[in-house]
C-alpha cells in the first residue's frame, strides 16, 4: 500500500511540485494502477530469463561527426536563458 508521504517523496524524486490536493488524487490513482500492474507477479516466470537483443557495437567511429557550429545557433536559440554562447543556469553549488 502506498501512502501520502510516498507520493510526496516520489514527486520530489521526479522533480515535480505538487499541492496537497494533487497528492491525494495521485495517491488514489497511482494506488489503483499499482494494484493492477502487480499482476506481473502472477505470471509463471519460474526458470524464465530476460532476453538481451543482438549485441553489436552501434557507436559511430570517433571521426569527424559534422562541421563545427552548424547547429549551435539553432540550439542556443531554444535556451530559456543565455549569456553569449552559453546556456545560463542558476548556481548549482551553494
Amino acid at each position: 500500500m502506498i501512502e501520502g508521504k510516498d507520493i510526496e517523496k516520489l514527486a520530489l524524486l521526479a522533480r515535480i511540485a505538487i499541492t496537497p490536493e494533487e497528492r491525494d488524487t495521485f495517491l488514489t490513482e497511482i494506488d489503483s494502477i499499482l494494484a493492477y500492474i502487480a499482476k506481473v507477479n502472477k505470471a509463471p516466470t519460474a526458470g524464465a530469463l530476460t532476453q538481451a537483443g543482438l549485441v553489436k557495437n552501434v557507436l559511430r567511429e570517433d571521426t569527424h561527426p559534422h562541421d563545427s557550429e552548424i547547429y549551435t545557433a539553432d540550439i542556443l536559440s531554444q535556451a530559456p536563458s543565455r549569456e553569449g554562447n552559453f546556456v545560463k543556469v542558476k548556481k548549482i553549488l551553494s
Binding site: I2, L10, I16, I30, A48, L49, T50
Partner: peptide, 28 residues
C-alpha cells in the same frame, strides 16, 4: 506527471525487482 511518478516508483530501489525486473522477464 502521473506516469513520471509511477515510473519513478517502479524503478525505485525497494520495488525494482518486484516491478521492473519482473516485467522484463514476463516480456520475454
Amino acid at each position: 506527471r502521473r506516469r513520471i511518478m509511477l515510473g519513478t516508483y517502479v524503478l525505485s530501489a525497494g520495488y525494482y525487482d518486484a516491478f521492473y525486473g519482473k516485467a522484463n522477464v514476463v516480456r520475454s
